[in-house]
Simulated scan of single mutants.
Amino acid sequence: MSTYADPSKAVVWLDGDAFRAPAGTALPADIFAASLSGWEAFGGIKAGFTVQRTQEITKFTIFNANGTYLSVKGDEDGTIKMRPVDMSKATALTLLTGGSIVAAAGGYEWVKGDDEKFAYICRVSAGTRRKAYFLKKSELANIPDDVLNDEDLAGWDMEISPLIPDDGSRFIRVFTESNPLA
């Protein structure tokens, strides 16, 4: 039986927030601050976030060796999935993809745009533990379903796709409040 397990280092993320700002917006001085100036909060997020990263790996073998002789890794790709369940300004801006809302027919019509790019932060916490993801440039990767029924909270299943920023920096940056290597 292992004697190295340390339950104090295990985490179940209990709370989270997401924010958006214009593409290229700089990383905040404190990504874990209670409020982020210049960033719009998404509000209610159902069931947290799923950060999915993929990378294609091609393995090369040679006939006189057993196993992989060389591997080539492709570019990393990824998405962050979330489900906003409130009609915040950040949710509306993301759904509009650069479009607008105009008065029409006694109400307001949502006019979709052409794939607007934006900066994105999602962060989670469990007590004093915190983790955050920063995307300097991203876009909505899907056309989200609009869930309207009496069995669930109304919301939109969004996938946020990170893009390489104009300055060439990493497309997903990950932050924690402590250094487990220290």
Score class of each variant (00 low, 15 high):
residue 48 G to P: 02
residue 4 Y to G: 10
residue 89 K to A: 15
residue 119 A to H: 02
residue 134 F to R: 02
residue 69 Y to K: 07
residue 90 A to L: 04
residue 13 W to T: 03
residue 123 R to E: 00
residue 178 S to Q: 08
residue 62 I to P: 00
residue 145 D to C: 00
residue 52 Q to P: 01
residue 92 A to K: 14
residue 136 K to W: 04
residue 108 Y to Q: 15
residue 71 S to M: 09
residue 26 A to H: 07
residue 27 L to S: 03
residue 1 M to S: 14
residue 5 A to K: 15
residue 33 A to R: 14
residue 117 K to Y: 11
residue 37 S to I: 10
residue 140 L to D: 04
residue 115 D to A: 15
residue 36 L to F: 06
residue 3 T to N: 12
residue 164 I to A: 11
residue 131 K to D: 00
residue 7 P to C: 10
residue 91 T to F: 03
residue 168 G to I: 05
residue 15 D to N: 08
residue 4 Y to P: 00
residue 50 T to S: 13
residue 77 D to S: 15
residue 84 P to E: 07
residue 153 L to A: 13
residue 130 R to H: 13
residue 176 T to Q: 14
residue 178 S to L: 12
residue 31 I to T: 02
residue 92 A to W: 05
residue 29 A to E: 14
residue 70 L to Q: 07
residue 12 V to R: 15
residue 81 K to Q: 14
residue 167 D to T: 09
residue 168 G to K: 08
residue 106 G to P: 07
residue 111 V to T: 11
residue 49 F to A: 01
residue 76 E to P: 01
residue 14 L to E: 12
residue 108 Y to S: 14
residue 158 M to H: 00
residue 72 V to T: 13
residue 47 A to I: 03
residue 46 K to T: 07
residue 11 V to R: 15
residue 93 L to G: 00
residue 167 D to L: 06
residue 79 T to Y: 05
residue 182 A to V: 05
residue 156 W to H: 11
residue 61 T to M: 08
residue 41 A to V: 11
residue 160 I to H: 00
residue 172 I to F: 06
residue 96 L to N: 11
residue 30 D to S: 12
residue 175 F to S: 06
residue 167 D to W: 08
residue 37 S to E: 13
residue 26 A to V: 13
residue 138 S to M: 02
residue 83 R to A: 04
residue 179 N to G: 01
residue 175 F to Y: 15
residue 87 M to F: 13
residue 150 D to F: 07
residue 87 M to L: 13
residue 76 E to L: 08
residue 48 G to F: 04
residue 52 Q to S: 15
residue 22 P to A: 15
residue 103 A to I: 11
residue 146 D to F: 10
residue 93 L to T: 06
residue 2 S to I: 07
residue 69 Y to W: 11
residue 155 G to S: 04
residue 53 R to T: 12
residue 170 R to K: 12
residue 163 L to N: 06
residue 58 T to E: 10
residue 133 Y to C: 05
residue 145 D to P: 00
residue 166 D to Q: 10
residue 176 T to L: 09
residue 85 V to Y: 09
residue 143 I to G: 07
residue 110 W to K: 14
residue 28 P to D: 08
residue 31 I to H: 02
residue 138 S to N: 09
residue 113 G to V: 10
residue 4 Y to C: 09
residue 32 F to L: 03
residue 81 K to N: 11
residue 162 P to C: 05
residue 107 G to L: 10
residue 63 F to Q: 11
residue 71 S to H: 10
residue 41 A to N: 08
residue 44 G to D: 11
residue 138 S to A: 15
residue 19 F to Q: 05
residue 85 V to C: 12
residue 78 G to S: 06
residue 141 A to K: 08
residue 146 D to P: 00
residue 145 D to I: 03
residue 55 Q to R: 12
residue 28 P to N: 06
residue 169 S to P: 02
residue 93 L to Y: 09
residue 147 V to M: 06
residue 42 F to A: 07
residue 4 Y to V: 14
residue 17 D to A: 13
residue 163 L to W: 01
residue 61 T to H: 09
residue 126 A to E: 11
residue 9 K to S: 05
residue 165 P to M: 11
residue 129 R to Q: 11
residue 86 D to A: 13
residue 66 N to L: 12
residue 3 T to F: 12
residue 100 S to H: 04
residue 115 D to W: 15
residue 162 P to G: 04
residue 144 P to L: 08
residue 28 P to E: 06
residue 19 F to V: 02
residue 20 R to C: 02
